[in-house]
């Protein structure tokens, strides 16, 4: 089925089989493998992407359902020259990742939160990542990373969460 997908600001029309999830469209169809396939049934959060600015599970949306929606993946956070965005940078600094499997999802869940809440408290951060499972960090450093990113976004004049370097 012909489907118009806008991924990281680029719109393209591709042929998608109805049973293919957005996750598989991104990874296999478009080669955007920063979005990770974990449980593939909505439990782990590794496949989280932004749809119209909100964090959603790409394994729980069919590719055909995403027709016309604005999708953003980790590849779309920066210009792709190796620079990290403010949230990714904070994850590195606070040791908010170890194996990295959950990290793409965590970073996009953090972006979705920081778009609507510039100064989240710890409870709000934990709520925002409550659908994302991490088996390495114990979550504390991830919470610290999001707090650090929030503080930097508030106090700097650089890019806000969700904004993109052109």
């Amino acid at each position: 089925m012909k489907t118009e997908l806008t991924v990281n600001g680029q719109t393209r029309v591709i042929d998608v089989e109805p049973r293919t999830t957005l996750l598989d469209v991104l990874r296999d169809g478009l080669g955007l493998t920063a979005t990770h396939a974990g449980c593939e049934h909505g439990v782990c959060g590794a496949c989280t992407v932004l749809v119209d600015g909100e964090a959603v599970r790409s394994c729980l949306i069919l590719g055909v359902q995403a027709d016309g929606l604005d999708i953003r993946t980790v590849e779309g956070l920066t210009s792709g020259d190796g620079a990290l965005d403010i949230v990714q940078d904070a994850f590195c600094e606070t040791h908010g990742l170890q194996c990295g499997y959950c990290t793409s999802g965590m970073i996009l869940a953090a972006h979705a939160l920081l778009r609507v809440n510039a100064a989240p408290d710890e409870e709000e951060i934990r709520e925002a990542i409550s659908g994302n499972i991490c088996r390495c960090t114990g979550y504390q450093q991830i919470v610290e990373a999001i707090q650090l990113a929030a503080e930097r976004i508030r106090t700097s004049n650089t890019l806000k969460a969700g904004e993109v370097v052109k």
């Binding site: 909505g42 959060g45 989280t48 749809v51 909100e54 964090a55 959603v56 599970r57 729980l60 949306i61 869940a109 979705a112 939160l113 709520e127 925002a128 409550s130 659908g131």
Partner: peptide, 9 residues
């Protein structure tokens, strides 16, 4: 109900 990502859809 669920968590933020599932409530969004």
């Amino acid at each position: 109900v669920g968590h933020p990502p599932t409530r969004c859809r």
